[in-house]
Design a binder for these strands. Sequence first.
DNA 1: TTGAAAATATTGAATATTCAAGAATTGAAG
DNA 2: CTTCAATTCTTGAATATTCAATATTTTCAA
Lengths: 144, 144
Amino acid sequence: MAKPNSPITEHLAYLLAQANREINRQLELRLSKEGVPVEQWRILKVLSDGNGHSMGELADAVLLNHPTLTKMIDRMVSDTLVYRVQDPNDRRKVLMFISDRGKVLCKKLNSLAVDQEEHILESYGDKSTSELKRLLESLIDSSN
Amino acid sequence: MAKPNSPITEHLAYLLAQANREINRQLELRLSKEGVPVEQWRILKVLSDGNGHSMGELADAVLLNHPTLTKMIDRMVSDTLVYRVQDPNDRRKVLMFISDRGKVLCKKLNSLAVDQEEHILESYGDKSTSELKRLLESLIDSSN
DNA sequence: TTGAAAATATTGAATATTCAAGAATTGAAG
DNA sequence: CTTCAATTCTTGAATATTCAATATTTTCAA
């Protein structure tokens, strides 16, 4: 008998891509109110601990390749949202810091993002959301 | 008292992006054995039902914008994996079909993808995987 | 101490994606 | 019928991303 080839919509990789696309689209829509791409919000959020973060560290944290990050940071420096400082302990590294202007923007973006999370909680449910988060974390863990 | 700003790693949007990136990276790695990007595998898989699918339908199914799909299909036509036929019932539409060569390739890709799914099942577990799939489907549903 | 290898970030060329506009066809209202 | 709006797909220009190569600094073994 013929093996019924599972449709693409049943693959985990596809479901993840689809869910990610949809949620990201919604978030993008909100952040566009401030004219900021999702990646820049991530960068600002990571830097908003006030510490310096190297480019490599940042690239990992915000899920961008090094060259892509470099060019995005160039733009953000032009917009005076962040600034570069050479790491005094290891001069190969560049430490990124958030500016005051960046902090102000980040706050606005955070509340837009919180809006979205709340909207998800409403339509999707408290329980499902936290369970999904748990499973995603554990999937990520098990992939390393 | 200060509101502790939740780190980016706790946002659903971030967890989805991270999981998607990782799983996609793994799949990419396997499919690269045949030199095919993930999106092309999706296209072949959708077309492998043997029916004609319009570009709009395909774009939705494989999570690509229209112009991006058009250009990717151009490449696949050059590689004789798929071909275009004008829809006789609505001449605005183009129906895409998979070629014999495309079918052969798709089979090979399917087994590479199955390898990955099995690898995930092993390291992540049967139960978690099906539960995660269920939650993702329901998230996608609730977003429409 | 020196010199080769590793780590870090950036650059430039090649490639891919996106946005806005265009061409062709259909639908449907007057 | 005719015309105008909507649908479908493609194109070209602008933008963004990636790959490979480069420059700089550090590490570490000989």
